[in-house]
Design a protein around this nucleic acid. Structure first.
Length: 679
DNA sequence: GAGCACTGC
């Protein structure tokens, strides 16, 4: 399979930087083929169809199965139909979970077409804000988070005869918790003599042993995908500057390859991608005659949707598309026509350290699994080529798998959910990959401080407040803030603020338009901090009919703003269901800030005599983030939404508070902290 | 004095 050769892809390119040679390997990865043939024929043409009878036989017999199949095997669309057509578990619903909303929606649409039934009848989907199912629905696609929510109401998942956990290799927090939930539900249903629960884990070719072992040595079935050969080139020497290396590779390929073949480059973040976009465009302008044109497109999540869509558009004849992407291009967005992938081997990812309860965002090496995922993007329609900007020796030293998210994040929400699910002992919950005891302990401590839990005879139980908190699709401290708000007569305002905080930033901040933005934003700015400023922006948005034009004029992300509005009405409905009084504080902003102080007291920082800030909880030196309206101010005491560790440790989204309010909110906590500070 | 990978309820 592998054949080494000293074949640099091009020798003509000159930028004054040395060329570096690559060594070559060929591997087979899966791809999908587009087709215009009728649906039934397409179903029969899928690689999985040959195995249909055998597969149905196996699925009928087994309680748990791990199904390994590469992209293009058709497993996600076909297995639910096979179960249904064979009448397996006819008495219940077949659930298929997905990590992403768009996937759940498009798969449901696809399968309902194949079954020639209207979407929402036999085949439906459930995602946040959207439930397209009915009494008739037997095959239901849903996000993993949605199934987890449903489990809080019924931990035995009684409505379902089968649960298919798809894309299990991605190991999202939600999928990882679901592993434990479905395993426990299956066992419990058996013990109680109820109808059995079939569990099917679907994954790309990774982690097989771990999945199988966890599900009581479940058999592993392999499905073939459609294979397209991919040539892999490693650099012969380690590259000290991966950006420079990527740049050279792009133009080497550009000189050699037919212009219809597009290039996808994996980089780490917005800033880097914008800079590289500019450099590529500048160089492309001055290429010698006779070379193809080049269209360079950035791709990252916070890019406005209109610009994201550009990567799907065709280019004029004789023009090559070069897409510079974050890891959004690994799984979330699939671009057709990619022939070449350039993998820098770097990624920006979050790490969590429980001792400082800090989340750190840092550029680091990808795992082998991630590198393969990137490589696979080159061979989706046809054979492809992947340039890895690292040596084969370096690759061998990469971690095998990306550390699952559950071992890299704050577990407060997860622990609250497990408690709401009535898991007997959350400290010993059967995670497939156990988080560290420190992280679990830190989460329990947080929930305790929020008043969500109490200890009773060595058991941790949910308080009535904690039970209410679990009803909100929010981080526990946000739920708590909402539940406190009636006391301060400002629930309407707090609902707006919490909704604003719980989605991505609604503010666009392109550096090129900084002065313009500052002028426009002036009218909303509150000296009391970002929360009140955001509230002002939301109020204006709402009063002016939620208009898109208004958003554009004010550099507000209208997509995120609409999401805020949806989240708000969802949260408000939950409040109504709890019979919470919902009042508006109108012009009184003090109440709102008091309420925030009571909810976010754990995130407090105080001004020191030298003009710097220190967190109250861990005495960590912190600074006000440049995006804050308080950036140039020095309030004595603030609460913040989150800490972000980049070049410094920054507080984001701040609110000015009185120290007295904080002592009122948690007297015991602050008495203890004060003592520690003095020692 | 200066900056934010990606999902999801």
């Amino acid at each position: 399979m592998s054949q080494d050769s000293d074949l640099p892809p091009a020798k003509k390119f000159k930028t004054g930087s040395p060329l570096f040679p690559f060594s070559r390997k060929t591997v087979m990865l899966a791809g999908t083929r587009k087709s215009q043939i009728p649906v039934e024929l397409q179903r029969r043409n899928l690689p999985i169809f040959q195995a249909r009878a055998q597969l149905i036989g196996q699925l009928r017999q087994l309680d748990s199965v791990v199904l390994i199949g590469e992209t293009g095997s058709g497993k996600t669309t076909q297995v639910p139909q096979y179960l249904y057509e064979a009448g397996i578990g006819r008495q219940g619903i077949i659930a298929v979970t997905q990590p992403r909303r768009v996937a759940a929606i498009s798969l449901a649409t696809r399968v309902s077409e194949e079954k020639k039934s209207e979407l929402g009848k036999l085949v439906g989907y459930t995602v946040r804000f959207e439930d397209i199912t009915s009494e008739e629905t037997k095959i239901k696609f849903l996000t993993d988070g949605m199934l987890l929510r449903e489990a809080i109401g019924d931990s035995l998942l009684r409505r379902y005869s089968s649960v298919i956990l798809d894309e299990a290799h991605e190991r999202t927090v939600h999928t990882d918790v679901l592993f434990g939930i479905v395993k426990a539900a299956q066992k419990k249903r058996k013990e109680l003599g109820k109808s059995p629960l079939k569990v099917i884990i679907m994954s790309a070719t990774m982690d097989v042993d771990q999945f199988s072992q966890y599900f009581n040595s479940a058999p592993v079935l392999y499905l073939e995908g459609r294979q397209h050969p991919i040539q892999i080139y490693y650099t012969k020497q380690p590259q000290s500057d991966y950006l420079q290396a990527a740049l050279i590779s792009v133009f080497q390929i550009h000189q050699e390859a037919p212009s219809s073949q597009d290039i996808l480059v994996f980089l780490t973040g917005q800033e880097e991608i914008e800079a590289m976009t500019k450099t590529c465009r500048d160089i492309a302008k001055h290429l010698p005659d006779g070379q193809p044109q080049m269209m360079v497109m950035p791709l990252y999540a916070s890019l406005p949707p209109s610009q994201q869509l550009r990567v799907f558009q065709g280019t004029p004849k004789g023009c090559r598309k070069v897409i510079l992407s974050t890891n959004i291009g690994e799984t979330s967005i699939t671009i057709t026509g990619i022939k070449y992938v350039i993998d820098t081997g770097m990624v920006k990812a979050k790490k969590y350290s429980p001792e400082s309860s800090l989340e750190v965002l840092a550029v680091q090496r990808v795992s082998k699994a991630q590198a393969w995922q990137r490589t696979g993007r080159a061979g989706r329609e046809d054979s492809g080529v992947c340039y890895r900007l690292y040596t084969e020796d370096e690759f061998e030293k990469f971690d095998k798998m990306t550390i699952p998210e559950i071992q890299r994040c704050n577990l407060a929400s997860v622990m609250l959910q497990l408690l709401a699910l009535k898991i007997p002992n959350v400290l010993t919950f059967d995670f497939m990959s156990k988080p560290s005891p420190d992280t679990i302990q830190a989460a329990i401590e947080q929930l305790h401080l929020l008043g969500a839990i109490e200890r009773k005879e060595d058991q941790i139980i949910l308080t009535p407040l904690g039970r209410k908190m679990a009803a909100f699709p929010l981080e526990p401290r946000f739920s708590k803030t909402i539940l406190l708000s009636p006391k301060f007569h400002c629930t309407e305002e707090i609902l707006s603020i919490i909704s604003l905080l719980s989605v991505d930033s609604v503010l666009y901040n392109p550096p090129s338009k900084r002065d313009e933005i500052q002028a426009v934003r002036k009218k909303f700015i509150s000296s009391e901090g970002d929360h009140i400023t955001l509230l002002n922006i939301y109020r204006a948005f709402k009063n002016l009919g939620k208009s898109k034009d208004w958003c554009r004029e004010n550099f507000v992300n209208s997509r995120n703003m609409t999401l805020v509005s949806d989240v708000r009405s969802q949260l408000r409905n939950i409040c109504i269901k709890m019979s919470m009084p919902i009042e508006s504080s109108r012009t009184d902003l003090v109440n709102i800030r008091q309420c925030l102080a009571h909810g976010l007291f754990m995130n407090t920082a105080e001004l020191q005599s030298d003009g710097t800030y220190t967190t109250t909880s861990t005495r960590q030196p912190v600074a006000i983030h440049p995006s804050s309206v308080l950036f140039h101010c020095k309030p004595a005491c603030v609460v913040y939404n989150e800490l972000l560790h980049t070049s410094k440790c920054y507080m984001r989204d701040l609110c000015v508070v009185d120290a007295d309010w904080l002592y009122d909110a948690a007297p015991e906590y602050f008495r203890r902290k004060l003592k520690t500070a003095k020692n």
